[in-house]
Amino acid sequence: MYPPGKGDTMARLIYCSFASLDGYIADENGDFGWAVPDARVHAFANELQRGAGTHLYGRRLYEAMTAWETDPDLAGQSPEAREFALDWQAADKIVYSRALASPVTARTRIEREFTAEPVRELKITAERDLIIGGAELAAHALRAGLVDECQVFVCPMVVGAGKRYLPERLRTRLDLLEQRGFGNGMVYLRYRVTGS
């Protein structure tokens, strides 16, 4: 599902996340425990991630994700968690942070600021797709016209306030490419970003 087709010249930049029905990735207290996937959703998300060669993160999300390499108990929670951890460790990571001195995981480099042109170049030269994580970093990429797809797992939850999946005042057209429902009430939606 991720690798570019034979005629494609660029890797895709994909923004993928879990969000509440009202569009938040975390509530106003920073809690996102309501978005924890069950085994079927986790296995499906693993398949999506497997095709990505590089993950782009802001500092906060990167620091949360490092547990997939540094905490063996996390990967030991289920076969799906172990599979996710192995795939995540195998991917390259680029972290955008002015504060982070050095990475704590392998295959990781730090960039001091997010700028569009190096990401455009990476899309041209990458052999596999890129995933961008974190609402603030994704907002910069969306506004720069870099994001090719938005993928969201909509959770059966309304949280009322918090950190939004999409930034305010962003206007762009989306084409629905895929949808899938799960028994736990989550719905996966995959959109191509077509512009304003």
Rank of each mutant, 00 (worst) to 15 (best):
M186G: 05
M186C: 12
R192Q: 14
P72E: 14
E127C: 04
F44A: 05
D71N: 14
F153C: 05
R112K: 15
G30T: 06
Y2I: 15
E149V: 00
L142Y: 03
L56W: 00
I131K: 00
R82I: 00
Y96H: 12
L61E: 11
R143H: 07
I14H: 11
A139Q: 02
D38P: 01
P118Y: 12
E69V: 09
V104A: 13
I25R: 09
Y2Q: 11
E178M: 04
D148V: 06
W88C: 05
P156E: 08
V104H: 10
D92W: 15
W68Y: 05
Y62Q: 12
A99G: 10
L166P: 13
A141N: 03
W88K: 11
I124Y: 07
A135F: 04
L176A: 12
G30K: 02
D92C: 09
G51S: 06
L56R: 01
K163H: 12
A106I: 00
S102A: 15
R169D: 14
K6P: 13
T194K: 00
A19W: 00
V159F: 05
R192W: 06
I132H: 12
I14T: 12
A11G: 14
L100P: 03
L122V: 02
Y165C: 02
A75N: 07
Y62V: 13
H140P: 05
S20C: 03
D87V: 00
D31P: 05
R82K: 04
A161Q: 09
Y62H: 11
L74G: 10
Y15K: 02
M186I: 08
K123W: 10
T54E: 11
R60Y: 03
D148L: 08
A138Y: 08
A45R: 12
A99E: 13
F84W: 12
L61K: 06
A64F: 01
Y15P: 00
E136F: 02
A45H: 10
Y15A: 01
V119Q: 06
G162Q: 11
F114G: 03
A144K: 12
N184I: 04
D27Y: 09
Y15H: 04
R98H: 15
A19G: 06
C155L: 10
N46M: 03
G160L: 13
G181L: 07
E149W: 01
V193K: 03
A135C: 05
V36M: 10
T70Y: 03
H140R: 05
L61R: 06
T115W: 03
A116T: 04
A67N: 03
I124C: 07
